[in-house]
């Protein structure tokens, strides 16, 4: 499902993939809304007087970006926590996104969801070449990200640029039945957290979306450093 370039594993990235089948997401179940709001309040309280950007795990995303000469691109977990801290809740973006946002904010893992029916596998997490194509979420314009790293399908179509922005063509919508989740950690996040994050997402999907989920890939960094 996911092949990670050895260079990126040596930079400290770790990955996991969960496939969820038979998800129902016509409406967000009230129990999930309650769980989301409770988690939002707890996380907002936890981060109230703490610096996000200097947290070792969040700072580590920036260090990896810098290895690819990318500056001032905030990782998705940090952006999410900025929102949660301000609003004491998560953005209401539908049940699938709610589930993975909660896991991402609790673990600091970057998580993206894609409609399994819209992607070709295996996906490669690798440096981007000039011939790879990226159309960001909610856009129709091609964007160049050569020299960065990305999740790329066998046809050279980027499904997610770093842990920053997903592509439009694989987005999950109301008709999506089967969803594939890509998890990305870094050398400041223990791989036990990666496993527990994937586990929590499986539980949330099965409890709130009525689907069945399986952990299909789990790759540890070869260069873990305690935070």
């Amino acid at each position: 499902m996911l092949n990670v370039s050895p260079d990126l594993l040596h930079l400290g990235l770790s990955t996991a993939v969960v496939v969820a089948r038979g998800c129902s997401h016509a409406a967000t179940p009230p129990a999930l809304v309650d769980y989301r709001r409770k988690a939002g309040k707890q996380l907002a309280s936890h981060w109230k007087n703490l610096s996000l950007s200097s947290h070792p795990a969040l700072h580590e995303y920036e260090r990896v970006h810098q290895a690819f000469s990318v500056e001032k691109e905030i990782s998705a977990p940090q952006k999410l926590l900025q929102y949660v801290r301000r609003h004491e809740d998560f953005p209401a973006a539908g049940p699938v996104v709610d589930c993975y946002n909660i896991v991402s904010a609790k673990t600091l893992l970057s998580i993206g969801a894609h409609d399994l029916a819209k992607i070709k596998t295996p996906i490669a997490l690798r440096p981007v070449t000039e011939s790879d194509l990226f159309v960001p979420l909610a856009s129709k314009e091609l964007q160049s990200c050569a020299g960065e790293y990305a999740y790329v399908d066998p046809d050279g179509r980027i499904i997610c640029r770093m842990e920053v922005l997903q592509a439009d063509f694989t987005k999950v919508d109301a008709n999506s039945q089967d969803v594939i989740f890509f998890f990305q950690g870094n050398r400041r996040i223990p791989t036990s957290e990666l496993l527990l994050g994937a586990w929590l997402l499986v539980e949330l999907v099965e409890r709130f979306l009525g689907g069945t989920a399986e952990l299909v890939s789990f790759q540890e960094t070869v260069n873990w450093t305690p935070a």
Binding site: S192, V202, E206, V216, E220
Partner: peptide, 27 residues
């Protein structure tokens, strides 16, 4: 279940703490 890197420090006979009765994880 545990990450392979953590298991590298274990061998049969090792004493551990286990969280049990968790939600099912298929893998």
């Amino acid at each position: 279940v545990l990450p392979a890197s953590a298991a590298a420090e274990l061998s049969p006979g090792a004493r551990v703490v286990v969280a049990t009765a968790l939600h099912r994880l298929a893998a």
